[in-house]
C-alpha cells in the first residue's frame, strides 16, 4: 500500500515539474519527490509483525525491521534541506538577474 502512495506522489511531482511555469513550483515539486522517495526506501525495509530496530526494555532480543534503509534515509533528509536551500538561493539570484521567475519569460528575455 505504501509503495503505491509513494509512486503516486512521485507521479504528482513529475507532473508539477512538467506543467508549471514558475520556478518556485519546480522547487516544491522536487521537495515533494524527495519526500516520496524517502518514504519508498523506508518501506522496502518493513517486515510484518516486527518492531523498531532499538534494543530496549520492551524488545530485549532482536526482532527488528531492516535498519539499513532507515539509516540511509536519515542522512538523506537533512541533506535535502541543504540542497533545497541552495536551490532557493539560486532562485533569488535568477530573480535579481531577470526580474521574473517565469520560465518562458526568462527564455524570451535571454535572446
Amino acid at each position: 500500500m505504501i509503495y503505491y502512495i509513494s509512486i503516486i506522489l512521485i507521479g504528482i511531482g513529475v507532473y508539477g515539474l512538467l506543467s508549471q511555469k514558475n520556478l518556485f513550483k519546480h522547487l516544491i515539486s522536487l521537495a515533494l519527490i524527495d519526500t516520496a522517495i524517502n518514504l519508498f526506501i523506508v518501506s522496502t525495509g518493513y517486515i510484518n509483525g516486527k518492531e523498531a530496530p532499538i534494543y530496549s526494555e520492551f524488545t530485549p532480543i532482536a526482532n527488528f525491521v531492516d535498519p539499513l534503509p532507515q539509516a540511509l534515509v536519515l542522512t538523506a533528509i537533512v541533506i535535502g534541506v541543504g540542497v533545497l536551500a541552495l536551490g532557493a538561493a539560486m532562485l533569488i539570484k535568477i530573480k535579481e538577474k531577470y526580474g521574473t521567475l517565469n520560465v518562458e519569460e526568462i527564455r524570451r528575455g535571454d535572446k
Binding site: 500500500m1 505504501i2 509503495y3 503505491y4 509512486i7 503516486i8 512521485i10 507521479g11 504528482i12 513529475v14 507532473y15 512538467l18 518501506s43 522496502t44 525495509g45 518493513y46 517486515i47 510484518n48 527488528f64 531492516d66
Partner: peptide, 24 residues
C-alpha cells in the same frame, strides 16, 4: 507523461519483494 511514469514504476514493483515480506 506522469501517468505513463506511474504505470512503468508499478510494473517495476514486481522486481522487489512484496510489502512486509522481506527475508531479513
Amino acid at each position: 507523461i506522469a501517468l505513463g511514469l506511474i504505470i512503468i514504476l508499478l510494473e517495476f514493483l514486481n522486481l522487489i519483494p512484496d510489502f512486509g515480506n522481506v527475508d531479513l
